[in-house]
Design a binder for these strands. Structure first.
Lengths: 181, 181, 181, 181
DNA sequence: AATGAATGAGGATTCATTCAT
DNA sequence: AATGAATGAATCCTCATTCAT
């Protein structure tokens, strides 16, 4: 049987789980406290015994359900003996898996379906066009054969994330990285 | 003197400008109709003479202030005579400039300051750690000397955007792209 | 060709006509000034050149489209030479026709479909039950054969209108009127 | 001390009472949710814990404060042993009392003071004129002495209610009913 | 005479939050 | 620990009305 302390802890976790789910589905602003409480099968009032405010709940979800610590652990594991390319592939795959496993949290970063859709359209279009250009030049023998789709996506993503996070990437260095002269 | 038609058109543009500004600053949900009206120096009621609802205003901003058409134009311009690397650099720089010039709209894609901060922290941390790893291996002579900072950011961005947009990237292909064997 | 004065008069009448129609359809409160203007094919602003306010328009409709004057004319016509029953029948038929011809105005007296429906249900039920009672007693030979349906409706209406208008009817007198002892 | 359930039930009734009062005084459309809340001494928000919308509140008032069931009970009580005229008088008196006791609900059926006033004027005028005519003919010896005031009101009410409820009365039958040949 | 841009007050409704039970 | 009644502020939106053109 659970002690008072354990039961409280359990409830807290349950509330955070429910909150993450609801936030991902409806967005932080779109989720009402009632929505959050309903999803956890409790009353709105009860939320306030565990969190000071909706805002505090949001922060806690972001902090405790965030995967920054997992990411750090992942990236700092000792891999000294292995070849760099192998390590890198494994590392990125692990990061990719981390994001996949936290799809809901990733969703929380985007306001609404609206914005998500617009973003998808934008990136899709951009990657397609850049990819076509690259394929063209490969066909023309100017660029060596390579996975132009992945290249297009990579280039596009690097630039976009640079701007989205407020620290733009060095474009010539980016191009030189993938297509050294 | 402006005709009525012109003045109405001007007002419409002004409302869209103000809306973009406010949406970028407070997020779509965080911006009240009053905020939007205040920013334009008009009454909330007037917004409804120009847009059917707040939702309609959001859509119009996204559509009319979106840069998808600019992006498309940019990417499809004829550049047949020039060397691929040069074109690519120019192209990505133009895209980068497009994003930079539309920083506010980019901001609209992210729900709130909150999420933006979390995202920045996440990407910063990830890039730093990957960068350190790469620098290490370069120092060890395993990888050829290269801009490891840019490489780290690029790899990270490619994976993250893949997940954020719902179409994950092919990680081995990504690694092979930058570090061919 | 119409003079300025005539054209203004014509517009005024048109506005009143439209208003009566809209008031009847949506109720006085349910009709917005825009509704009224739309129905007349003009702008809301124009209404204010003809009527001081929506309230004034309502009053004018009630006054100028009211049928009190018609009713008075109807009832005061000289009919001295004719038999009373005949005159009465003709008179009531004329009144009935007046109401029928002003169905829209009659509708204005009732707030909404809601109330109208409730009223219809109430009166329907009441009349049915009283009618059944009367038919029963006629069958039992206690009352002389007569149109019990009409009697029921009449009795019911007399009582209801008495209360609705705030001056109750004298019930024993009412019964004595139709069923003299 | 009242249990929570009881207290909630009491509050619900109180809200309905207040609503009936306010609706009667201001009309359904004329009463704002704040008016309704104020009349009950609570906040507007609280109304929404008890009723889904203002519309739902209106319907509930009409249903739960309606007197259709009372009317039915009244009219279907067993009175087989008593003389018809007596029963009828008693019945109508009871109905009249029912309406008197539910004056507020009766008022809800009429949109506004405005309409009520117009209606009163109309019926008053009509009854007066018909009454004068009847008195005339009684004085002339053409009609037997009778309560011409009540007769006028009855005739008028029967015709008016017929039109108001959309099922017109049979005028010759009506006349024949009161003035048989 | 007529328009339509603009306002300001008010409307219904939602929601985060508090508190007695 | 948990409920649910209650609040008050804020939200989106409508509307009667005014006024420059």
């Amino acid at each position: 049987m659970a002690t008072r302390r354990e039961q409280a802890e359990w409830r807290r976790e349950q509330l955070l789980d429910a909150a993450l789910r609801v936030f991902a589905a409806k967005g932080v602003d779109g989720a009402s406290v009632k929505d959050l409480a309903d999803a956890a099968g409790v009353t709105a009032g009860l939320l306030y015994r565990y969190f000071d405010s909706k805002e505090a709940l949001v922060e806690t979800v972001l902090r405790e359900r965030g995967f920054l610590s997992q990411l750090r652990e992942l990236l700092t594991a000792d891999r000294s003996g292995l070849p760099a390319r192998e390590v890198l592939a494994e590392l990125l795959a692990a990061f990719d898996g981390l994001l996949a496993g936290n799809a809901e949290l990733v969703a929380v970063f985007f306001s609404a379906t609206r914005a998500r859709a617009a973003l998808a359209e934008l990136t899709g279009e951009g990657q397609r066009l850049i990819g076509a250009f690259l394929a063209d030049r490969v066909a023309a023998g100017e660029l060596p054969p390579h996975d132009t789709g992945t290249a297009a996506r990579t280039l596009f993503a690097a630039v976009a994330v640079g701007r989205a996070t407020g620290s733009p990437i060095d474009v010539p260095a980016l191009v030189g990285l993938i297509y050294p002269t």
